[in-house]
């Protein structure tokens, strides 16, 4: 009796395939704006502005290197359903364009109202003055894109996000502005504390694995030393490392900071030769356990820097 089995199988298949279409739209959820951010930092900042009116998801996980993300189908599904896409810009998340293409969502194409480039209007550091090409690895061709970890940038970033949200839901402008103001007030208050923590170390030089923390250093008066991974994505050469060690010895640089996914063993080797310490900083919200919110992340970084420079 194969017929009933075949019918049942087809019925189950139809149910499984058709089910998403049959589900009733959750009325409350339908009102919330669906926002997708490329990184967890931008997600945190978007939630700070959007509050209850937005449902935000992040493409990159907090503990992932945002430079080289493997684009997966699940990311495309997220972007497909999004009303707004917040990108980091400055060529950090070019992989997001691949996701956008695959997602086939016209609302979030470059230039569409549903897209926000969080870097608009920011003062960008480390814009290269010489010609830049692939031989320099993942070097940042339009300037250093790792600006989100600088709390001083929060005002401009949240302004950009606010503009995007308002384009889609103009009637909620007062609510968004209220949220943003409250968030920025919290940041302002914390700024005083952070500046005080790092004031004793003004002018101190710090070596990084990859130049991620330049904006943070500049904000609080620290100076960037060399980077271990001179050309990001290309393994460090012994010549470069020995020059770096020399610089560290000459300038008495006592601290090397790395992101959680860097080759900590190599950093420790370099630090050992130069008589310095290695500390892990959070390069994004969620990169380390103690850094699950934006304020906590900056807090963690400032504390760790201070402890490392002591």
């Amino acid at each position: 009796m194969r017929s009933p089995i075949r019918v049942t199988a087809i019925a189950i298949l139809a149910l499984v395939l058709g089910a998403p279409g049959l589900l009733p739209e959750n009325a409350a959820a339908a009102d919330k704006l669906r926002v997708v951010a490329t990184t967890t930092d931008l997600k945190a900042l978007t939630e700070a502005v959007g509050g209850d009116l937005v449902d935000v998801d992040s493409l990159a996980r907090g503990n992932q290197n945002p430079h080289d993300l493997e684009v997966r189908p699940s990311l495309m599904v997220k972007v497909r359903r999004a009303d707004l896409l917040v990108v980091n810009g400055l060529e950090l998340d070019l992989w997001a364009e691949v996701v956008v293409q695959g997602a086939n969502n016209p609302k979030v194409l470059p230039g569409a109202p549903g897209r926000v480039d969080a870097s608009e209007g920011l003062l960008v550091l480390e814009v290269p003055t010489a010609k830049v090409d692939r031989s320099m690895g993942d070097v940042h061709p339009v300037g250093n894109p790792h600006y989100t970890m600088d709390p001083g940038m929060a005002a401009q970033i949240t302004a950009n996000i606010l503009n995007g949200l308002v384009r889609l839901q103009p009637q909620s402008r007062p609510a968004f502005e209220k949220n943003r103001a409250a968030f920025l007030a919290a940041v302002e208050q914390a700024m005083g504390r952070w500046a005080a923590t790092l004031a004793p170390f003004k002018g101190a030089k710090v070596v990084q694995y990859h130049p991620v923390f330049v904006y943070l250093f500049t904000r609080f008066g620290l100076v960037k030393g060399g980077a271990i991974e001179d050309r990001p994505g290309i393994p460090a050469t012994p010549g470069h490392l020995s020059r770096l060690i020399q610089e560290m010895k000459q300038e008495r640089i006592k601290l090397v900071v790395v992101e959680p996914w860097n080759d900590v063993k190599l950093a420790e080797r370099v630090a050992q030769e130069a008589g310095a310490k290695v500390r892990v900083l959070a390069a994004a919200v969620g990169a380390v356990k103690e850094a699950q919110t934006y304020l906590d992340t900056v807090d963690y970084n400032v504390r760790t820097l201070a402890e490392g420079l002591r």
Binding site: R61, N63, Q64, N65, D68, E70, P235, P260, W261, N262
Partner: peptide, 11 residues
């Protein structure tokens, strides 16, 4: 791919 250090580890 499931691990944060993925790419570095593979290299």
């Amino acid at each position: 791919d499931r691990s944060p250090h993925g790419a570095e580890h593979l290299r």
